[in-house]
Amino acid sequence: MFTGIIEDLGTIKNLTAEGENLHITVETSITSELKIDQSVAHNGVCLTVVSINDDNYVVTAIKETLDKTNLGKLITGDLVNIERAMKLGDRLDGHIVQGHVDQTAECTAVIEEDGSWIYTFTYDTSLSNITIEKGSITVNGVSLTVVNSKINEFSVAIIPYTYEHTTFKNLKVGDTVNLEFDVIGKYVKRLNDLRN
């Protein structure tokens, strides 16, 4: 379980394919605090630490993960948003995030305003995911509030702190992002679908 509050940026140091799996080597400032078998979110994708070597650690993404997320598009040198699992009893500063990406979306607009940025994303509605105005959404692991919700599109407003401390500073039109829709909204939608 995560909160969507990014702890650190990780740098992709190496990518090694093995069959349909991808071993991802990441360097972070918190590597020394990690342990093998620990869950860590990478751009919102929960992956298990399988080895640690100095400032680097390795996680493995299987085909299912690569098919449903943007991790298969990573290249050496890319930055990823990093968050360790929350501790029971901590404040929930973001929202309930499972680290299970529902689908990807494309960034279709970036508008710089006076002191903030508005990012717009479009996504495939065939998977039955929805956003609501002022609801929660996780974009590349970052807990955000939806603005301007439409059928297959939504926007988020990014404050300077979030811009500087996440991968939003590198995000541009045409980039693919991971989306995790609000877990409570998903259950409500599912129950409603079952009634109809």
Rank of each mutant, 00 (worst) to 15 (best):
residue 47 L to I: 02
residue 89 G to T: 10
residue 75 I to L: 13
residue 117 W to D: 05
residue 112 E to T: 11
residue 99 G to D: 03
residue 190 R to K: 14
residue 4 G to H: 05
residue 44 G to K: 15
residue 131 T to F: 06
residue 77 G to H: 10
residue 99 G to V: 08
residue 59 V to N: 06
residue 154 F to W: 05
residue 91 R to I: 11
residue 87 K to H: 10
residue 96 I to F: 15
residue 181 F to R: 05
residue 69 T to C: 04
residue 112 E to Y: 11
residue 165 H to S: 10
residue 183 V to A: 14
residue 82 I to H: 01
residue 169 K to P: 07
residue 112 E to R: 12
residue 67 D to C: 03
residue 48 T to R: 11
residue 53 N to A: 12
residue 93 D to A: 15
residue 17 A to D: 08
residue 75 I to C: 09
residue 41 A to W: 02
residue 81 N to W: 02
residue 92 L to Y: 07
residue 31 T to W: 05
residue 32 S to T: 12
residue 70 N to V: 03
residue 54 D to R: 13
residue 91 R to W: 10
residue 71 L to E: 00
residue 151 I to Q: 12
residue 174 G to A: 10
residue 152 N to Y: 04
residue 159 I to F: 11
residue 157 A to E: 14
residue 58 V to I: 15
residue 176 T to E: 10
residue 137 I to S: 06
residue 159 I to H: 06
residue 178 N to A: 11
residue 77 G to E: 07
residue 45 V to M: 04
residue 98 Q to E: 14
residue 78 D to P: 01
residue 15 L to F: 08
residue 161 Y to W: 10
residue 89 G to Y: 12
residue 113 E to C: 05
residue 70 N to C: 09
residue 75 I to F: 03
residue 114 D to E: 14
residue 34 L to S: 04
residue 40 V to G: 02
residue 170 N to M: 14
residue 143 S to L: 10
residue 126 S to Q: 13
residue 178 N to Y: 13
residue 35 K to D: 02
residue 47 L to K: 01
residue 129 N to T: 08
residue 165 H to M: 14
residue 7 E to D: 09
residue 99 G to F: 09
residue 32 S to G: 05
residue 41 A to V: 06
residue 84 R to Y: 04
residue 175 D to Q: 03
residue 104 T to C: 09
residue 99 G to H: 06
residue 65 T to Y: 07
residue 19 G to H: 05
residue 55 D to A: 10
residue 11 T to W: 00
residue 21 N to A: 15
residue 51 S to T: 05
residue 150 K to T: 02
residue 187 Y to M: 11
residue 168 F to Y: 15
residue 150 K to S: 08
residue 69 T to E: 00
residue 139 V to S: 04
residue 183 V to M: 15
residue 194 L to K: 09
residue 48 T to I: 09
residue 75 I to S: 14
residue 160 P to Y: 09
residue 103 Q to I: 04
residue 78 D to L: 06
residue 154 F to H: 08
residue 92 L to K: 02
residue 195 R to M: 11
residue 108 T to G: 01
residue 58 V to L: 07
residue 112 E to K: 15
residue 161 Y to I: 10
residue 119 Y to P: 02
residue 91 R to A: 14
residue 73 K to R: 12
residue 18 E to T: 12
residue 25 T to A: 08
residue 67 D to A: 11
residue 103 Q to T: 13
residue 10 G to C: 14
residue 174 G to I: 03
residue 62 I to Y: 07
residue 135 G to R: 15
residue 32 S to R: 12
residue 105 A to L: 13
residue 115 G to M: 11
residue 33 E to L: 14
residue 34 L to M: 13
residue 23 H to W: 05
residue 136 S to L: 09
residue 110 V to R: 15
residue 36 I to A: 04
residue 102 D to V: 12
residue 101 V to W: 02
residue 61 A to C: 04
residue 174 G to N: 10
residue 164 E to L: 11
residue 10 G to H: 08
residue 107 C to W: 00
residue 144 L to W: 15
residue 51 S to C: 04
residue 10 G to L: 14
residue 24 I to E: 05
residue 188 V to E: 06
residue 54 D to F: 09
residue 77 G to V: 13
residue 122 T to D: 06
residue 164 E to Q: 15
residue 116 S to T: 07
residue 105 A to P: 00
residue 152 N to M: 09
residue 122 T to E: 13
